[in-house]
Amino acid sequence: MDWQAFSLSLELAAWTTLVLLPLALLAARALAWHRFPGQSLVQALIALPLLLPPTVLGFYLLSAFGSGTWLGRAYEAVFGGSLVFTFEGLLLASIIFNIPFAVQPMQRGFEAVSREVREAAWCSGMSAWKTFLRIELPLAWPGILSALVLTFAHTLGEFGVVLMVGGNIPGETRTIAIAIYDRVQAFDEPAAAIMAATLLGFSLAAIALVHGLSGRVGQGRG
């Protein structure tokens, strides 16, 4: 069991979820309640990482992160480091790759909050912020929770993008999924098996959590 890889994966998943939470909340809310020109294009772009092969996305990100691009140069100028084969680059790739997993369930959650209910909150004197906290968040909660758990679990298991953008540097970019691959390559099947089982258990628990909690929230509060 490669504990360093495991904790790196947890760290990556936590950061990805944390950074995506506010961004996805804003995006999901806007997509659920507003109509604007080009909306279907935005929806399609958000869904793209679901269908795109991870290596393809990884390839483009790798190209975009390189020191020859404006993004790479800008990052180097500001932070003094590279995006390629670093944890920060991995985090950025992971955020982009997880957009659909964070936005889509949240969007479903916000869509379930009727316009009338929000209007009733405004007419009751509740500010936009108070309406968000006391009405929108609790009502959209099952969707938001699903998004968080899915993003976390999905980041934990991501392989293709990580390998392309981060490579396999222990303590920096070697996540548990990479470590499993690494062990199999080295014919260390028992270690690979333990780590694979850990990930399997984690994924099952995540799915159970999403189902269980969203069901309970829906009934108990409704």
Binding site: S114, E116, V117, E119, A120, A121, I135, L139, R221, G222
Partner: peptide
Amino acid sequence: QHYALFPH
């Protein structure tokens, strides 16, 4: 018309 109560 449909009351729009806060269901939670």
